[in-house]
């Protein structure tokens, strides 16, 4: 049976989470088709056709899919998905939004947020905020799965030569519509894709002080994140939150600054390769997971760190 993977993109470029989801599909094994649904997204389909392991790109290019509304995307994917053995999407907020609708329309369970493929029907996934890892086996004929992208190494973005097939089926519901969006604009790399992440917590004291982190981030080519405490306190917007209910990151280097290390936060970053903690409280739980800990005042450390890098 073939595998249908749903591409994550912004109508202009393919999100790297797609390449990681393709890696999970490759481990399951089988012919892999990639659906690019969006508006004015031909360039994404062309990019996707070069991805390693994709045999066919399905392109659904219509205004109905421009903002990835779950009602439209869910129905489209369920209609297409009937003939596949597996349907996979990255566990981004888009994937989490429409995939359960696909599963329900196909009358099958969904397996959320897998971190390992044991076999074509058996997967590992974190439960209880990553405090336990469950191995689950699906008896459904179609397996609907979301993939935690950070747990898989991306397939190559180049080298493939898939055909692109344009679809003409259009699903456009009349019960939901896009009104607007406020997207954070940043010159820095995306949090979930960055190889270095530097995050600030309540210890930053206010939003202004985050520029101290930004200066270090610019030296390292890093993305800037935050703990839930910093977001809840209004220092920075929600899209910067790293944690169980925010973004899950696993960079080469994670620097936690003024973050105590609540379970909620650890769930979002403990798979990072190297963790550095900077905190003036030497009892802070973050030090229990850090490879390198520096007990010091962050307002002294950050300018010095910027200068020494």
């Amino acid at each position: 049976m073939s595998i249908l993977v749903i591409a994550e993109h912004d109508n202009a470029t393919l999100n790297p989470a797609t390449l990681k989801t393709l890696a999970a599909a490759k481990q399951i094994g089988g012919d892999i088709h990639l659906l690019v649904a969006g508006e004015g997204c031909q360039a994404v389909a062309d990019e996707a056709a070069k991805a390693e392991g994709v045999s066919k790109v399905l392109l659904a290019d219509n205004a109905a899919y421009g903002h990835f509304l779950a009602e439209n995307l869910g129905q489209l994917v369920a209609d297409l998905g009937k003939d596949y053995g597996h349907i996979l999407a990255p566990a981004t907020t888009t994937g989490k939004n429409f995939m359960p609708r696909v599963a329900a329309l196909l009358d099958v369970a969904q397996i959320s947020d897998i971190i390992a493929v044991e076999s074509a029907d058996t997967f590992k996934r974190p439960i209880y905020a990553g405090n336990a890892i469950a191995t689950v086996q699906s008896e459904d004929t179609i397996k609907v799965i979301t993939v935690r992208a950070t747990a898989f190494d991306a397939v190559s973005a180049e080298g493939g030569n898939a055909s692109v097939e344009a679809l003409d089926n259009v699903v456009n519901n009349d019960k939901s519509e896009f009104v607007g969006e406020e997207l954070a604009k940043s010159e820095r790399p995306d949090l979930t894709a960055a190889s270095v992440v530097i995050s600030g917590g309540r210890g930053m004291q206010n939003g202004e002080n985050f520029h101290l982190l930004e200066k270090v981030a610019d030296k390292l080519g890093a993305a800037v994140g935050a703990s839930r405490a910093a977001v809840d306190a209004g220092f920075v917007p929600n899209d910067m939150q790293v944690g169980q209910t925010g973004k899950i990151v696993a960079p080469e280097l994670y620097i936690a600054v003024g973050i105590s290390g609540a379970i909620q936060h650890l769930a979002g970053m403990k798979d990072s390769k190297v963790i550095v903690a900077i905190n003036k409280d030497e009892e802070a739980p973050i030090f229990q997971v850090a490879d390198y800990g520096l007990v010091a005042d962050l307002f002294d450390v950050l300018p010095e760190l910027e200068q020494k890098l």
């Binding site: 912004d10 509304l69 888009t94 019960k175 939901s176 896009f178 607007g180 969006e181 899209d239």
Partner: peptide
């Protein structure tokens, strides 16, 4: 208004 990866998105639902 929804919390999405890139920021916030608003949808109108009947």
């Amino acid at each position: 208004t929804r919390e999405v990866d890139g920021g916030l998105q608003t949808v109108k639902l009947q």
